[in-house]
Amino acid sequence: MTPSLKYEGALRRRARQLRRLIAAGGHRAAWGAAVVPAYWWDGHPNFGDALTPWLLPRYGIVPVYREPRRARLAGVGSLLEFFSSDYDGAIWGTGLMTDVEQRMPSASVLALRGPLTAERIGAGEVPYGDPGLLVARHVRRPARRSAVVAVPHGHHRGHEGLAALLASEPGRARTVNVHQRAGAAVREIASGEAVLTTSLHGLITADAYGIPAVWTVLEPALTGGDFKFRDYEAAVTPGRTRYVDFGDLRTLDDVQRLVRSADAARVTALADGLERSLARLTDVIPALPRYPLGVLRRQPHEV
């Protein structure tokens, strides 16, 4: 396959961008909305990374993918290591991947994933929460389909121990493929009574719908270890964690016994803060073009 035809290649990225622009027009809030050069991870398909272009048109913002040096908005995900210390655009619900200090004094921080990221980048008091908490405001929870829904990180899809646990009682558990579009993955996760995850956005989606969840760690270890989980939980469940050692999950009964829900009132407060913070975007990034005028006139290699 030629480089341009790979998922991260120029042709396929342009095709995805065009589909997203067309899809944005299906949301009344996006008509005449601000068009924002934004960065999210687009190196492979993953529903959590796809939340930036999925969510923002619903709030009257149309993101257009740009590499970090050209972006004016950092979106959903563990992305801040990709930006330079002199970045002067906006940050909305973004986090660090690793436990490192990375001061960003010129950035306009609308919201951050959690207080650990805030401390590492030198931010003051700002709203916390991952924007994935907003999905339940746009997708109705489907009917229950499984007692346990497992959301393994892409690195863990072939984990033998996890596969054996889920297969121990046929029909009681199902696995969500994170390498799919945002809406489809959200609906699958929301159809469970309990969520077992090694993917952060599996936990976040569970919290958005008030579904009790537990997260664990499998091999291979994720880049940054558990920092992004601790950062998120410090915002949503301060002082406690839903982490359980995988060795303690011997049966599906163990999963259902050990899952815990985030406080619904706190989730609502964080989601409200994330929505309010978006209202400041056009103040901190002035003179943005409006959708659809000017969008498709971008240089092809930048779309």
Rank of each mutant, 00 (worst) to 15 (best):
T2Q: 11
S4V: 14
K6F: 13
Y7H: 12
G9N: 10
G9F: 07
R16S: 12
R20N: 07
R20C: 00
L21V: 07
L21E: 01
A23L: 10
A23E: 13
A24T: 01
G25P: 02
A29W: 14
A30T: 03
W31R: 13
W41T: 00
H44W: 07
A50T: 04
L51F: 08
T52E: 09
P53S: 11
Y59T: 06
Y59E: 06
Y59D: 05
V62M: 04
P68F: 07
R69K: 12
R70V: 00
G75E: 04
L80V: 13
E81L: 11
F82W: 08
S85F: 01
D86V: 09
Y87M: 01
Y87K: 00
A90L: 07
W92Y: 07
W92A: 06
G93F: 00
G95L: 12
G95A: 12
T98F: 00
T98D: 15
E101R: 06
Q102M: 14
A107P: 11
V109K: 11
V109A: 14
V109Y: 13
L112Q: 13
P115G: 10
L116K: 12
A118L: 01
A118P: 13
E119F: 08
I121V: 15
G122H: 11
G122N: 05
V126H: 04
Y128T: 10
Y128C: 08
P131Y: 04
G132D: 09
A136Q: 02
A136H: 03
H138M: 13
V139L: 15
A147M: 11
G154N: 11
G161P: 09
L166P: 03
S168E: 07
S168G: 08
R172C: 03
R174I: 12
R174G: 11
V176G: 07
N177M: 06
H179M: 15
A182Y: 08
E188K: 14
G192D: 14
G192V: 09
A194R: 14
V195L: 14
T198Q: 10
T198D: 09
L200V: 12
L203N: 05
A206Y: 12
P212I: 08
V214K: 02
W215C: 13
T216I: 04
A221C: 01
A221H: 03
A221G: 12
G225Q: 02
F229V: 05
V236G: 02
G239R: 06
R242I: 15
D245V: 01
D245Y: 01
G247M: 05
L252K: 11
L252G: 15
D263F: 03
R266P: 08
L270R: 03
D272Q: 05
G273K: 06
G273W: 02
L278K: 11
L281A: 09
V284Q: 09
V284C: 03
A287E: 14
P289I: 10
P289Q: 10
P289D: 09
R290F: 00
P292E: 10
V303L: 15
